[in-house]
Design a protein around this nucleic acid. Structure first.
Lengths: 201, 201, 201, 201
DNA sequence: CATGAATGAGCTTTCATTCAT
DNA sequence: CATGAATGAAAGCTCATTCAT
């Protein structure tokens, strides 16, 4: 009868993950300490270990959650009628999210994934999923003759993901950049890349 | 009275930087410890501080060195006759370097620069220099009608740098990717992006 | 939800301060290491930092405690009927305390206070309090015509405190000194200093 | 023929001791590092060890020098005709020296002497010498009926030295004290202490 | 005589983790 | 479920001292 309520348990986990997210965003994966996270989540260190086996487990769970959310966003675009408009919209949303307080950890994650096999696996599985989604997307566009049919969908998807990743560095390299114009330019880039060569521009 | 050879001093500094580079590549900026670096450089921890005032100073020196080398590479392309060929070549070289033992720390660096103001400044100054070089490059291409004259050179340069940054994530997200084909696809992307709209493709 | 017993916490703090006191007495403020204190208090170095934020905090707490105790002793004499007898008694007690295991750190403290502003402030505030107590004491004696009314109470108090400080050096300069005779001589000194000139001696 | 010039050697030693004195005054015996002293003396650490076997040797030599100088000052007063005037003058000089840049290390020294047997010995030998000088002084005063003949010369000398030591703490305990008035008060104290009881005051 | 390279133990402090209650 | 006590290894860094030149 005195079993743990699994819903409450999950809620607490989420609260901890949220707190961890804020700490990681502020100080990085290595810079944020268990102590910091406990303070942010207002729980004791001993208690935290009831929910997560280790710091790495927290990172992994947080990353997995974040990537899942990203996948969902992508899958919502899939059914969008106009391919390029959907892309442009996504780009702008990406940049908007970037300014939110819950900062972008993508670069930290990717850097860390290069030496942490656990994270590497998570990242690669997520990437495969998104790439498939994106490839499917591209195939649809090609069917509608909105996207150059000569482009290999899988590879194109991979390249586009890289381009999106690269976006994160824009404002690091130049904090004063005009983000709106940057978005427009990127839309141009993607449009020209994907548009069938014979199409009027 | 004869002062010690400043050349030897500089040599030792370089040896330490090399060792640090290997450690950072292996474990990240935060993951690599002074002890690790000392072991790798085969010196005592006390001695290291004759050459660098702090761990951060080592990071800064290493980063500065790496970025300077990158700038030099870029400036060498500037005089290249064919714009797009030069780009493609640079892309391939970038990918080749990526596999070297002295691994790429660019993502770590950019992630770290978001919270370390010292690194941020170094990165931004370097980025400004390279961006100017690249913009100049683009202007030349526009003068020769090899590059779309309607593209703002500075912004285009910034976007291209982001695209290059994004490249680093390709093989993290998919270790099995065919790098050669990736390079070709990227060349296509850049070509289509930059080529004047009326030009035959 | 039941928070941990703050009494236990305070007890542990006191135990650590006691251990620190012994170490400082043995090796001085700078000579005693955190390791030493932990060994003496039989706790781990990490644990010590649950109770004190830094070594300096330990020193400050210990000093503050010691000075507070000293102030209390002084305030107890204030109501004593015979001024000079009270002084003499205090002098003897001071010398007795000097031999205790929890040794005298006054000289270390005063020397350190010359370069550590935090300690300087603590010392000066304590000194002000004791000086006021002593001055009040002197005023009472002057009212009873037991103390020369021409002496400025504040300044006399300051000088007397200095004389007490100086006492600490007696046995350092000559370990074989007869402490009883020394105390008598000091009583003579203070008596002659304070007694009204016209009084019969 | 290529023997070391012993005069130059001694000069260098003195230069180092001077530099050390400045460092010790600034940072204390433990706070000043060999590095600091080398920088202040403008020599290399290796070279310093040609002149002194250890840091402790530097401290000992410096202390010995300082105490010797102090003894000399005292011995110069010995032949002074008026006992009390000479005392008062010495007190004022003591306070003046206190403000000099080459700051007072007496408290550090006495505190350190309690745990360092080498320093303890130096201090005690010096103290004995000065005490004898002072006792001789007192005996002279007693012969001239300027000093109370009932005071034991040796013990009185010891007490007076303590009183002088205590002086060093006056301005630590109250940085805003009026030093001139303090000196006058101390002269009063000593005068009343030493003056024969029957003498007019 | 003089240099600066080099050492290695030790310093204060931090931190992920475990334990007793 | 929840706390804060407690650990101990490791971090970055300092320093007295020695060594090769």
């Amino acid at each position: 009868m005195r079993k743990v309520d699994p819903i409450k348990h999950e809620e607490k986990r989420q609260q901890i993950l949220d707190a961890a997210g804020r700490c990681f965003a502020r100080d990085g994966f290595q810079g944020a300490s268990i102590s910091d996270i406990c303070a942010e989540a207002k729980i004791s260190p001993g208690h935290l270990y009831h929910y997560f086996a280790s710091k790495e487990a927290i990172v992994a769970a947080m990353v997995e959650g974040g990537l899942e959310a990203a996948s969902e966003r992508f899958s919502q675009i899939v059914d969008s009628p106009d391919v390029l408009a959907a892309f442009a919209s996504e780009v702008q949303q990406t940049k908007a999210r970037h300014d939110r307080s819950g900062r972008m950890l993508l670069l930290d994650l990717l850097a860390e994934a290069e030496r942490n096999p656990v994270l590497a696996k998570v990242v690669q599985e997520h990437s495969r999923d998104v790439r498939r989604l994106l490839a499917e997307f591209i195939r649809k566009g090609q069917a509608r003759e909105q996207i150059d049919a000569s482009l290999d969908p899988e590879l194109t998807a991979a390249i586009l993901m890289s381009v999106f990743d690269g976006l994160k560095t824009l404002s690091i390299r130049d904090p004063k950049i005009d983000k709106k114009k940057g978005t427009q330019m990127l839309t141009t880039l993607i449009t020209r890349f994907l548009t069938p060569p014979h199409a009027a521009r």
